[in-house]
Computed example of a mutant assay.
Amino acid sequence: MTDLEQGMTDLEQGMTDLEQAQQDKIAPWDLEVLNVTDFHVAVFRDRYPVTQGHLLFVPKYNTAAVIGDCFESALRYGQELVEKDYCQGFNIGINSGTVAGQTVMYPHVHLIPRRTDDCADPVGGVRGVIHGQANYHSGGYQLPANEN
Rank of each mutant, 00 (worst) to 15 (best):
E80K: 05
L55S: 08
Q79E: 13
E80D: 11
N62P: 04
T63G: 03
T2S: 14
T98K: 15
L31W: 08
D38S: 13
V99Q: 08
D3Q: 11
R47H: 06
E80M: 11
G132H: 04
Q22W: 03
K25N: 12
I92F: 02
G14L: 09
D17T: 15
H131G: 01
T98Q: 07
G124S: 12
R47L: 15
D69E: 15
L111W: 11
D117C: 02
V126M: 06
A21G: 06
T51F: 04
C70P: 10
M105Y: 09
E12Y: 14
Q20C: 06
F44K: 13
R115T: 08
D85G: 00
G97Y: 04
L143Y: 02
Q142W: 00
F90T: 07
A74W: 05
G132L: 05
H40M: 14
A64S: 09
A42M: 08
P122T: 01
A120H: 02
C119N: 01
E19Q: 14
D38N: 15
E80W: 06
M8H: 15
P28K: 01
A74S: 14
I130R: 03
N146C: 08
G89D: 10
A74V: 06
L81M: 15
H40Y: 07
P107E: 02
E32S: 05
V99N: 11
A74R: 01
Q20P: 01
P107G: 05
L31N: 13
A21T: 11
V82I: 14
P144K: 09
R45L: 15
H137D: 03
T16I: 05
E147P: 04
F44C: 08
T51V: 12
E80R: 07
A21S: 05
G140E: 01
R45W: 14
D121Y: 10
G132F: 04
N35T: 14
V33C: 08
L4R: 13
F44V: 08
P107I: 03
F44H: 14
T103A: 08
N135C: 04
N95S: 09
Y141I: 01
G139L: 00
N135P: 08
L4E: 15
A100K: 06
N91G: 10
T2L: 05
F71S: 09
R115F: 07
L11V: 04
Q142L: 08
Q133W: 02
C87P: 04
T9E: 09
A65G: 12
I112C: 11
S138Q: 02
D69Y: 14
Y86C: 01
R127D: 03
Q23R: 09
V50C: 05
F71G: 15
L56Q: 14
A134C: 03
I112K: 01
A42R: 07
M1V: 10
P49D: 09
D38P: 00
D24Q: 15
Q88R: 07
G14Q: 03
D30K: 13
D117K: 06
H54Q: 07
G124D: 11
T2E: 14
A42Q: 00
T98S: 15
K84N: 07
A21I: 03
T116V: 11
R76G: 15
T2A: 06
V123M: 00
A27Q: 12
V50L: 11
L11A: 07
D10W: 13
H54G: 13
C87Y: 02
